[in-house]
Design a protein around this nucleic acid. Sequence first.
DNA 1: TACGATACTTACCAAATGGTAAGTCGTCAA
DNA 2: TTGACGACTTACCATTTGGTAAGTATCGTA
Lengths: 198, 198
Amino acid sequence: MTDTRERFIDAATRAFAERGFYGTSIANIAESLPFTKQALLHHFGSKEKLYAEVLARISERLMANLKDAGESTSDSGERFEIVFLAILKASLEHSDDTRLLMRELLDNKRRAESARTWYLTAFLDTLTDLARDALGDEEPACSLALVYQLLGAINYFVVSTATLTQMLGTKTFDDLSAAYEQELRSLITSRLAVANGR
Amino acid sequence: MTDTRERFIDAATRAFAERGFYGTSIANIAESLPFTKQALLHHFGSKEKLYAEVLARISERLMANLKDAGESTSDSGERFEIVFLAILKASLEHSDDTRLLMRELLDNKRRAESARTWYLTAFLDTLTDLARDALGDEEPACSLALVYQLLGAINYFVVSTATLTQMLGTKTFDDLSAAYEQELRSLITSRLAVANGR
DNA sequence: TACGATACTTACCAAATGGTAAGTCGTCAA
DNA sequence: TTGACGACTTACCATTTGGTAAGTATCGTA
């Protein structure tokens, strides 16, 4: 059944997120399920192809989530804020996806043949349009810069949660975690207020 | 001579930044220099120990840079801005360091025994103090959140430069790159203005 | 001149890696 | 009943991995 495939993809997502492409062996993935690594090879042909399928799944989730949040309110500033808060929430929820994409970004130069820009291009275009509306378009590159800075603020935090927890202790980390959304909101509204208000 | 050690550390920094710990073999590092991998093992004992030395070097550079920028002006808001712009500049200049630290953050859970929080703790503490002054201390977690968001905005961008270049083309990328510092400045001043002005 | 240490090399090696070959077993259609 | 097909396994295999053993060459010092 196709169910086995799904289980492999899920397990692979977790493994690749946790240890990276090179740190993960296909035997390792298979061992986390009641199958041998040859079952994996039977379904996907090679490690690279499995990885490609994992990336495709993540990309789907990413765009689906963006679509959901995009069609919310009328006010451009408000929509901008809502979308980024949704991204923060989703990135935290699917932290495996977030970590894996960060690794992909880092490895990109190496595995550049596949040139996985697809998911980012569509994603960034959509967000940049939102930013242009919200900022009242100062300069074109300006909107993209803001978008990228906010994405960075979100992704870096998600990727750091493990380290921060063990560094700060669970209590302080929970405080930070709670403050993070609020502070992101402040950051966005401040920036938009200055852009439009003055 | 100790010069060989330095060359190994430099080459290893580049290799680990480019391909990650697991994607890099010690033979690979040695081949980029006129030595065999056993020369490397002679100097460092093991791959892990070499990696530790690489991390230590990076940590030194990081703190040195922070020290330089920290003792600038008197106004707390202005100092806050100057420090983060200095971090952006340094992170771009030492992009290998930045990429490697991002990988370290991602791998942290695995190689958690060493628990490399040292470099981050001192770094974050210093910055959080600056933020507290600049913000006029709304809540304690708030300052840390802001610091982390700005670090994220910086590091995510640096880590993405390769992907963005090939995705946008060099021209658009240069525009973005130029706008990035300006936009980061706007983001910071906006946030501080709203915090203090109102 | 002999001695010891440092910097390196050539030979190895066991374990793990991604992948191939050749099956077994059950199911479903002709 | 047969025969093809999909799902999965056991046997292998070449290559690469990090690391050990045992050298050689050079140099400062007693």
